[in-house]
Write a protein that binds this DNA or RNA. Structure first.
Lengths: 230, 230
DNA sequence: CGAAGCAAGCATAAATTAAGCTTAAAAATT
DNA sequence: AATTTTTAAGCTTAATTTATGCTTGCTTCG
């Protein structure tokens, strides 16, 4: 299971499938062929990046992006991928908060490069698949974690949980977001598992590094505080 | 708003001048027409972003970027601006750690948009989800409040209450409005809870800042007065 | 006029509720 | 069999609500 999640909103099923194929080599992908559904999925706030087509049936890609940025206050990187190639279109896209704008037809390599660049810049992907925050080093390819160069053994879900926090430092993450990201919406599991894993992760962090960087915001969520790492 | 500093490395003096003209509207700019000098300047590590041409006399733009990333461990965003438009060139640029790649000829607007997007993503350009009124700063994404830069701890409902006032300064808000917004119409709770929370919030504000910006309008409602913040 | 009465709102503390934590055991997966 | 995942239960702690008496300003009427 990959730690990165990319949402693809693209109505052309053929293209969507290739996109998924391309991007699967760096992340887990979710595809929506419908603008409305895509918007809903994005609202979950669990994706590390979104590839967004502009011309969708019913809903306009611009409006989706606008809503994400202005109403939902979501800050994940968004790459617009579209046939609309006029300057006005690009400017409009960027003004609404896009991070990159690629016009069809495009090269597979360029898409991957641009996606990687965005993930890197937004702190969701490190050089050679390594994320570093304070004393934490997380290697996404071999799933090895160290704190102050001391190895830290985490099992699968504990690792995924830590990665999610490391990728979103100083940001509130709700219990539902954690659940949706690690277990998936449709999971039958009780949401209280999240608490169990929080407890386990915190215990291990404390034991190995005597750090307690994850704060609880009762009724709101959790937050990994980088300030507490000094 | 001009604390941003952009380095432009471009040997074509004509183009460099236009670039400077374009980018001056968002940042302070420094131009170098020479690869060596440009590399040195970049090494200072004081720039928030670099616009880099690839074909430079003597030194190759790729090598400069490579050196910055691998030897100097510099992480500022770099936008490559060049006439080299083959896929291989782009891939190469991204692999060396570029954040964006724009080919000549380009539109002024697009350059500015892309530069802004990079600055935003790297946290140098305001993207903050923050409300500010007088000495109050309320960050909606991490629910942190400060008054005169002094942190103020509020629990869930207290925070929601303050946000409601901050979002509607100098406006009368009735007790019912507060109740409906924080508890919902159908709530069974007695409406006098509002008074309790008003009391708690006021006490905390007073204690931390000795301000009492919320006035009671008997039989009418409450009002957060910005005038009282001088 | 001015004191009594009254209602709105305030302050504090006590009681209640519920969110989140911890642990251990059961179930599933390897 | 060993490890991971999930459930369940009791516990802890913080937020929420209620209850109570107090303060303030307005109204009324002696």
């Amino acid at each position: 299971m990959k730690e990165l999640h990319i949402l693809i909103v693209e109505d052309d099923e053929e293209l969507a499938k290739s996109l998924q194929l391309f991007l699967n080599e760096i992340a887990q992908t979710t595809v929506s062929h419908d603008g409305f559904e895509g918007q809903m999925l994005g609202q979950e706030g669990i994706y590390d990046l979104v590839v967004l087509d502009l011309m969708l049936p019913q809903v306009n890609g611009y409006d989706i992006l606008k809503h994400w940025r202005n109403e939902d206050h979501l800050s994940m990187p968004v790459l617009i991928l579209t046939a609309k190639d006029t300057l006005d279109d690009k400017v409009h896209g960027f003004q609404l908060g896009a991070d990159d704008y690629l016009t069809k037809p495009f090269h597979r390599e360029e898409l991957i490069m641009r996606v990687k660049a965005l993930l890197k810049r937004s702190g969701h992907l490190g050089n050679d698949n390594q994320l570093t925050v304070g004393p934490f080093k997380v290697n996404l390819s071999n799933r090895i974690v160290s704190v102050n160069d001391k190895p830290l053994e985490l099992n699968g879900k504990e690792f995924d949980l830590l990665v999610y926090f490391i990728q979103n430092p100083d940001t509130i993450i709700t219990k539902d977001q954690i659940f949706d990201r690690l277990w998936g919406f449709e999971s039958e599991t009780a949401i209280s598992v999240v608490e169990v894993y929080m407890s386990n992760l915190r215990k291990k962090l404390k034991k190995s590094s005597s750090l307690s960087p994850i704060k609880t915001l009762r009724n709101v969520g959790y937050m990994f505080e980088t300030e507490a790492l000094a």
